[in-house]
Design a protein around this nucleic acid. Structure first.
Lengths: 258, 258
DNA sequence: AACAAAACATGACACAGCTCAATTACTTGT
DNA sequence: ACAAGTAATTGAGCTGTGTCATGTTTTGTT
């Protein structure tokens, strides 16, 4: 199999490196594919060596040639303002697709950087495109990913333009909780992979405000925080503050068809 | 040709109702198609009777079965918060696609409503999907539309989380100006199809703030406003306030491949 | 273990933009 | 052409959140 471009080193583990046996396959791109199709997809996917914390998966402006799925760890995507400030546009957890918004560009429109040690599956876009020509289900799944991201973005706009600091933080925590749950982790106790600074950046708040809201929530017995460890004590009230109904809270995962 | 569903009345004008002769085809879905493919696309498109100002093209929750391209007039898309407030997520001008974010849903995730008398091309999604199975260029164009929308949304997040009132309004005007220009209208003089209230809603500002910024810009000789008529007097300064470089300002159009 | 650097928390204060209120200018229907 | 409702403007005052300053805790390095 001639690879177009040897970008990063490829591991060659046997078990971990097949979609077929990956515990995330029911959340990820293979979601709606049959076994045979998964096998085809598998063949074009490269598993790269883990990214260390702070390393870039790609940078805004890098030539676009691959999309990625997170296997473990987490990423932040961000764009740069003209005066050099960064604006985080998304955090990505395992099973989520990264880089799709560059699809019709020659270069990535955002940068993506590891928040911790992170492994990804690398999918050369040209191959994915060829394959999706043959597999309608794969195509459908890609459309799903894209339109899901758009819907999430609209919710983010709502958050940024209408919600106050407490509502923003509550929404953020509820969303993370739902995403962890989908992946089989506890929705009540988890570790934040990002700093307060990054949370503030993402939510359009100053770090200090995030910090204060955390302490306020802690005082009101809604959450218990210890550094990056978060325990949700009163989920009901958290959702209420977030302005989310029970069912909205369930759809916190990215890249999941309806 | 058996139509799946007779939704709204279909006109049967001869000239206006062909992509082939439509002045927008170079900006719209047919963008990268050859004549034969355009003809095929043409056959599945229905032209509906104009929407009157305030009428809905679709509502959040309506069953998803069509995507649309604006022919003339304009639309606002919005979602509802749980306490019944509306959050405008987009304005749509001629040649722009509407409804794509519902692609993997059974129902539209947003509402879309005419800001003025508006005509649209209605494209039954199931037919579009069939056709896109056969036409790679069409498929590519749809992916382009989606990823472009995601990129625009990220810019909007940046605006909402980092920019102040003046920067927001300037960005908004610069963006509209660029979109009008692409469509062959003057980038300097145009009519706002939306109210101050709607601008404020979209930009995350109170109406009063929008009004004040407009007067301030007028006083500084950057624009001349008369009701909904806007004339851009000092484009350079407008872009500067918006925090946009010249080339960024050019990409204000939605749904345009790079 | 000791240090440096970064991340986090908390208080005091300022100010951009919101709210409320009042006035003026448009739209729309009859 | 008029009235009545709606949209836009302008002012005054308030407030949520940013900024700045300071101290504390955590993390990473040698």
């Amino acid at each position: 199999m001639p690879s177009r471009q040897q970008k990063g080193n490829c591991l060659n583990l046997t078990k971990e490196t097949r979609c077929m046996t990956c515990s995330l396959s029911s959340l990820c791109l293979p979601l709606s594919l049959n076994l045979e199709d998964i096998d085809q997809l598998d063949r074009i996917i490269k598993r790269r060596q883990p990214l260390k914390k702070g390393e870039h998966l790609f940078r805004q402006g890098d030539s676009f040639d691959c999309v990625y799925a997170v296997r473990s760890g987490s990423l932040k995507n961000y764009i740069m303002t003209n005066d050099g400030e960064e604006q985080i546009t998304n955090f990505h957890l395992p099973s989520e697709m990264v880089g799709l918004d560059g699809i019709d560009c020659s270069s990535y429109p955002v940068s993506s950087r590891a928040l911790e040690t992170t492994t990804v599956c690398e999918i050369p876009y040209s191959r994915l495109q060829e394959l999706s020509n043959e597999l309608p289900d794969l195509r459908k799944q890609m459309f799903s990913s894209l339109s899901k991201e758009i819907r999430d973005d609209k919710q983010m706009m709502l958050l940024l333009s209408k919600k106050n600091a407490e509502e923003r933080v509550a929404t953020f925590l509820a969303n993370l909780s739902a995403r962890f749950k989908r992946r089989g982790y506890s929705p009540y106790t988890f570790r934040l992979p990002m700093s307060r600074n990054e949370i503030g950046n993402y939510l359009g708040l100053a770090v200090e405000t995030v910090s204060r809201v955390f302490t306020r929530f802690q005082t009101s017995q809604i959450i218990a925080v210890n550094g990056k460890e978060v325990h949700i004590t009163d989920r009901q009230q958290l959702l209420e503050i977030a302005g989310l109904s029970e069912c909205e809270a369930e759809t916190g995962a990215k890249l999941v068809a309806s």
